[in-house]
Structures are given as C-alpha cells and as structure tokens.
Amino acid sequence: MLIELENFTINNIDVSGSLLLESGEMTLLEGENGVGKTSIFHELNLNHKKYFKGRVVRIVDQMRLSPLNEISFRELILQMNEYRYEELDCFSDCMERIEKFQDTPINQLSGGQNQMVKIALNIYLSGDIFLFDEPLQFLDKENKIFFRSLVAKLLGSNKSICLVEHNDDSVKKLASKSYQVTLGDFIQVRSSNGVY
C-alpha cells in the first residue's frame, strides 16, 4: 500500500513524500542521523488508522519497555491474548530465544533482553505491517542472526516490513526497495536505488 506522508511537520519542518509497502517485501528507510526517520515512524504510529486504513500495524521502536509493575513476558502475553491478531509460526522461535528470561520481570531485563522481548511481543500480537526502528540495537551477534531469519519468515508469511537500520548490511540485504529521507527546506522521503 502507498502511504502518503503529508500534512505533518517534524521540528516545524514540513514533510513530503510517500512510502510504498507491499506484502511479502521489506522497505528500507535510510538517511543521516537526525534527519527524521524515527519521527516519521512516530507519526505513522500516532496516526496509523489514517495511514494504514484498517491494517494492523506493529512497531518496534527504540523505546524500552518499562512497566511499573513486575510483569514478565510470559505473564504479559497471557494478558495480551485477547488482542492477538493471528498466530505466527515464527513466534515459537522467538519463545525459544527468550526462554531463559521470559519469567524475569520486564523492568529488570538488560537492554538486549528488553529488545528481544519487544520483538517477541509484537510477533506474538502479529499484524499486517511491521515497522522496525533500529531493531538490532543492544542485540548480540546471535540475536542479530536470529532477527534476520525472523524477518525472512515474516516476509514468507506475506507481511510488509519497513526497517530503519544503520549498521547491519545482512538484514538490509533482505530489502526490496529503499527510501531516502533527506533534510533541506523540507524533509523529503523518496525512493532511491540503493544496492546492498
């Protein structure tokens, strides 16, 4: 689906452009630090009903999950069961990866563990479209490899993915297309011919 980015600003700078997200494909969002990629994701999350027109969107962003109480991941998914969109096969893989700390209170997890829990939670809830904003931050080498396989499985399940990732080329290679975010008089999002 084509997402028209319009009528919003980032730091009082108008944003223009569009993103094409297609089922079974990953779109890469690239740009320099501070150009507004995370803010664009934030806008897409904030107004997901407007942009995605009824599709279910899951976002894994850079904010840590930090509940006030001592809920663990296992307890959390039991509470979230009624909001589950569909059951994805790859969720069992996620559970295996986080087995060691799925009963640890989420607010006591390390950065990397918290990130894995965030990813697992969104896979558990599932959706049509996944937005990943630097999902590999804090992850060790093995978990990065796991994430790459997870993305491949999501694409195999015909999900749409939009990814912001600076460092890991192995994940970026799974992208079918990329968009550049540039900052000038306005923030522009346009298709690029990036090759990885």
């Binding site: 904030l46 997901h48 976002i59 904010m63 840590r64 999950l65 930090s66 109480n69 959390l76």
Partner: peptide
Amino acid sequence: LQFLNLGRSFATSMG
C-alpha cells in the same frame, strides 16, 4: 492505562 503501563509507543500502537 494498562497499555500505557508498557510505554507510550506500545499504547499508541494499540490505539
């Protein structure tokens, strides 16, 4: 408020 307990971003994604 239960969703908000998991963070603003998560709560926003839940509508």
